[in-house]
Write a protein that binds this DNA or RNA. Structure first.
Length: 183
DNA sequence: CGAGAGATGCGCT
DNA sequence: GCGCATCTCTCGC
């Protein structure tokens, strides 16, 4: 388990989104492998389409945790990317639960393992991610990221989910054929 | 099963 | 006030 350095994130967001597939997120006792991501830069679908109080973190940092509250109920987990004033973040949409599964099931209130992390809101609920994680540097706060040598065979690609603008961009990435991907 | 609607509150104009 | 990078439940087939 090799920790992922912040330099990893100081690159093009679309590339980072693909390379995050297969990596391992650790939050407390809970561990999951990333199987689905989406890239957001300064396109029309991105919070960073304009620089606001909320999206400033996408402009000003890389290798940090960006959490936002959505639909009055759910949180979404992102990792910030890019440098030199270009905003960016990768949304973590789904994962394969590896450890701490009992705790994740309790937090989610579900029985089926396939329903633990197969979506950005579910994933945050399973890991206990909330606003308090927002702004933390990856690796030095409660959210840690590792490369355990897992090799992703084939990367699938599609439009991003749940957006109205920016539909033309195919910036959703997933491990092809993986049972833990959302939808 | 698939489609549709309701839940629910904050950020932004 | 509006819209939202979602999820769950219900209803009909």
């Amino acid at each position: 388990m090799k920790p992922i350095e912040s330099d990893f994130f100081a690159r093009d967001t679309v590339l980072v989104a693909q390379e995050l597939l297969g990596k391992v997120i650790v939050v407390g006792d809970c561990v999951m492998r990333i199987v689905e991501t989406e890239a957001y830069r300064d396109d029309a679908a991105s919070h960073a389409h304009t620089k606001t109080g909320r999206s400033a973190i996408m402009y000003d940092t890389y290798g940090h945790v960006y959490v936002y509250f959505i639909y009055g109920m759910y949180f979404c987990l992102n990792f910030t990317t890019e440098t030199k004033g270009m905003p960016g973040a990768v949304l973590i949409r789904a994962g394969e639960p590896l450890q701490g599964i009992e705790m994740m099931m309790t937090r989610r209130g579900v029985e089926r393992k396939e329903n633990l992390c197969s979506g950005p809101g579910k994933l945050c609920q399973a890991l206990g991610i909330t606003n308090e994680h927002n702004g933390q540097q990856i690796g030095s706060g409660m959210v840690r990221l590792f490369d355990d040598g897992y090799v992703v065979e084939r990367i699938g690609r599609s439009r991003r989910v749940g957006i109205s603008r920016g539909r033309h961009l195919f910036w959703r990435f997933f491990v092809n054929g993986n049972k833990w991907v959302s939808r």
